[in-house]
């Protein structure tokens, strides 16, 4: 007969309570996560392809999980019906025209359903509603982005070309600019812009070819992701563009300051001649181009295909800078000796 003292019983009781408590807490949290304890609104959507969606996958609205996939059934050879349970408390935010699309949670994550608000007003969804769907395969989405970047590039290139042409050909401007420094600046900018636009044009062609290739099914996504030459080219072009836009900005600032500040013959001459109008137009064009260029640059840098390249580039630069700094430090140390 074991001496079953009360303190032992208390300890055993504590042990059991804590153990069972832990289990219950986990089960409760899981249940809450899967919305077992919340009443939900069932809605449906029909897709052609659900890309490996599973029961229990999340449904997101604006990036926030608002429900789960309850069931997936094949209706016919081209239609898959997905039944979703939306949490009761978000029902009023999901409109009847919200568009359901299949997406992924990160590059390697779970398949999810994204709900995006449709255009225009609509009443909140009710139980049993069938939501409209948009099927944009992720590859297509990617290519679309690339295409837009490409179009931007083309646009900018032609813009730049115009600007440079105008700058170069505007006799009045060159005559008017008596300042020694400014014309040189402008000229250099114009040259830079011209070079950049040429490179940009090449890059744009490349991108167009690639996009077309991928679309035709020739160039797999992997090619895009791994082809360093292409990334290099785009990167180079982008760097050139960045440099150009900086120079252009500086030049423009200088020009503008001169125009506004400077009294004397320039100012008077410029007030209402065609040359002046032309010059202003040119300046405006240049400013717009620069802004667009910057925009395009950001887009390019955020395009995940090129993200890796830019990151590597940044690291490389940092390394080089560090090396240079170290070398400088060494040299100066040697000098001091």
């Amino acid at each position: 007969m074991p001496n079953n003292s009360t303190s032992n019983q208390v300890r055993l009781g504590l042990f059991v309570v804590v153990g069972v408590g832990c289990l219950l807490v986990v089960l409760y949290l899981l249940g809450r996560q899967q919305n077992l304890f919340q009443s939900s609104v069932p809605v449906q959507a029909d897709f052609r392809n659900v890309s490996g969606l599973l029961k229990g996958n999340n449904v997101r609205l604006g990036g926030i999980t608002v429900g789960t996939v309850k069931d997936i059934t094949i209706l016919n050879d081209t239609t898959v019906r997905v039944q979703m349970n939306l949490n009761q408390d978000v029902q009023r935010f999901v409109r009847r025209n919200a568009v359901a699309s299949i997406g992924t949670d990160g590059l390697v994550g779970n398949t999810i359903i994204n709900l995006t608000a449709g255009p225009g007003a609509a009443p909140a969804v009710q139980a049993g509603d069938v939501l409209p769907t948009s099927e944009q395969a992720s590859l297509d989405a990617m290519l679309a982005t690339l295409n837009i970047s490409n179009q931007n590039l083309v646009g900018i290139t032609s813009g730049l070309r115009q600007v440079t042409d105008k700058l170069n050909n505007s006799e009045a401007l060159w005559q008017l600019l008596s300042n020694e420094q400014l014309p040189a600046d402008v000229r250099r900018s114009a040259q830079n812009a011209a070079a950049a636009s040429a490179q940009l044009a090449a890059a744009a062609t490349d991108v167009r070819q690639l996009t077309a290739g991928v679309r035709r099914g020739q160039g797999p996504l992997g090619y895009l992701l791994t082809d360093d030459a292409f990334a290099n080219q785009i990167g180079h072009a982008a760097r050139q563009l960045a440099g150009t836009s900086d120079t252009l900005a500086v030049t423009l600032n200088g020009l503008q300051r001169q125009l506004q500040r400077g009294g004397g013959p320039v100012q008077t001459l410029l007030t209402d001649t065609t040359a002046a109008r032309q010059l202003r137009q040119t300046l405006r064009n240049t400013a717009q181009s620069t802004a667009k260029l910057n925009e395009s640059m950001t887009a390019l840098q955020h395009n995940f295909l090129l993200r890796g390249y830019f990151r590597r580039q940044a690291r490389e630069e940092a390394r080089l800078a560090a090396c240079a700094a170290a070398r400088r430090a060494r040299d100066s140390a040697r000098l001091r000796e």
Binding site: P2, N4, N8, Q9, R11, L12, F15, V16
Partner: peptide
Amino acid sequence: FHQCYVVGY
């Protein structure tokens, strides 16, 4: 219960 104490706790 004694065994639970010995075996568990």
